[in-house]
Structure formats: C-alpha cells, structure tokens
C-alpha cells in the first residue's frame, strides 16, 4: 500500500496551497510528511511522490538530497539534531556532541540498537542566545542543553515521555522581553 493512499484529504489540503499547474511545489511538504512518519525517505516513497506531483523520481531525489532535514537512511525514534555553528559552539556544542556520541555509542547515520536514537550535526538553528540547542525530530527546540539538561532529556525520552512532558533542570532565559531589560 502506498504511503499516501489513506491521506487523500491531507494531500488535497497541501495541493491547495499551490497553483494547480504547479503541483511539484508540494514536493517539500510531501517529503516532510514521509520523513516525519517513517523517519527517512525510501526509494519507494520517492517514486510515490514523483507520481503524485507529476515529475520524475530523479527530480524528487535531487530536491530531497539538497536539504539537511530529509534522510535517506532510517533514523531512530528520536533523531537528535545538534546545532554546531558558532554561537552554540561558544556555548559548548562540540563537547555536547562528543558527549552525546559517547553516551549513545553511535555516529551520524547510525541508530542505537534499541532503535531509539540517531544523531546529526546541523547548522545554525536560530537560537543563538540559548545554546547549545538540540532539536528532536520535528519538535520545538530543546535549549540551553547543559550536561544536566541533556541527561534529563535522554532519560525522559528513554522513559517514553513526550518532549513537552520532560522537565529540564536549571534556567534558560529568553531575554527577549521588555520587562526583563
């Protein structure tokens, strides 16, 4: 069965976002849907998407491989994306990355034996004031990822908690509000 067979209503909504003669504009939302639900985009899904948007699988793969978010190989249940760019680096992102690798015993492109985790170094996530930042799957960021917070995050995820249920210790200020100034 095709991935999108039971998602006709959803597809219709997505295609409505673009002019009818530009169906291929929907390639990114379609790829994202697959990535979100299956953890990677297989050759089979590439073909399915090409069919849906009226182009060739080659073109879909060209687009897919252009972006960092879509994965060609399976990822863990929790795909941890660690920002490695300057501001996060100044907040210790490199040490965080090393610690994460050591803790999970995997490198990029690998999945922990329990299928829970995979890791990826990504570029600036736009949260430079609250680094280091980790993004789990397509969820809102986990910010100020100190040693303690990383520990709590991994524990929470291992315990099967949803991201927003996990309590992270310590402060992480968003210095963006007038009254804080």
């Amino acid at each position: 069965m095709g991935f999108f067979d039971d998602k006709q209503d959803w597809l219709e909504i997505v295609f409505r976002n673009y002019p009818p003669e530009n169906r291929r504009a929907a390639v990114m939302p379609l790829l994202r849907k697959v990535q979100q639900e299956e953890g990677y985009v297989s050759e089979e899904r590439i073909r399915e998407i090409a069919e849906l948007i009226g182009t060739t699988p080659t073109q879909v793969r060209g687009v897919m491989s252009f972006y960092s978010y879509y994965q060609a190989v399976p990822t863990g249940k929790y795909h941890l994306q660690v920002c490695a760019t300057l501001s996060c680096k100044l907040a210790g992102a490199e040490e965080l990355w090393d610690a994460l690798r050591a803790e999970l015993g995997i490198g990029p492109g690998e999945v922990t034996p329990d299928g829970l985790f995979s890791i990826q170094k990504v570029e600036c996530l736009g949260a430079c004031h609250v680094g280091p930042v980790v993004q789990v799957n397509d969820e809102p960021y986990v910010e100020c990822v100190t040693k303690e917070r990383l520990k709590a995050l991994l524990e929470g995820l291992r315990a099967g908690k949803r991201l927003e249920e996990i309590e992270l210790p310590g402060p992480c200020g968003h210095h963006v509000r007038e009254e804080e100034a």
Binding site: M28, R32, V63, Y67, V122, E123
Partner: peptide, 25 residues
C-alpha cells in the same frame, strides 16, 4: 499560505527561496 523549508541556508537568498517554494532544488 505557509511553506516550510527543510534545512538550507541558501534558501534565504530570494531567488533560491522561490526555487525551493516551487519544488526545485
């Protein structure tokens, strides 16, 4: 309408952004 990117700094360049929005590299 809202269109989500997928991790490419270059898509902040306006013509690259349009290509991305149209479903091209």
């Amino acid at each position: 309408y809202v269109h989500r990117g997928a991790g490419a700094y270059i898509c902040g360049e306006e013509t690259a952004l349009m290509n991305s929005l149209e479903g091209f590299r």
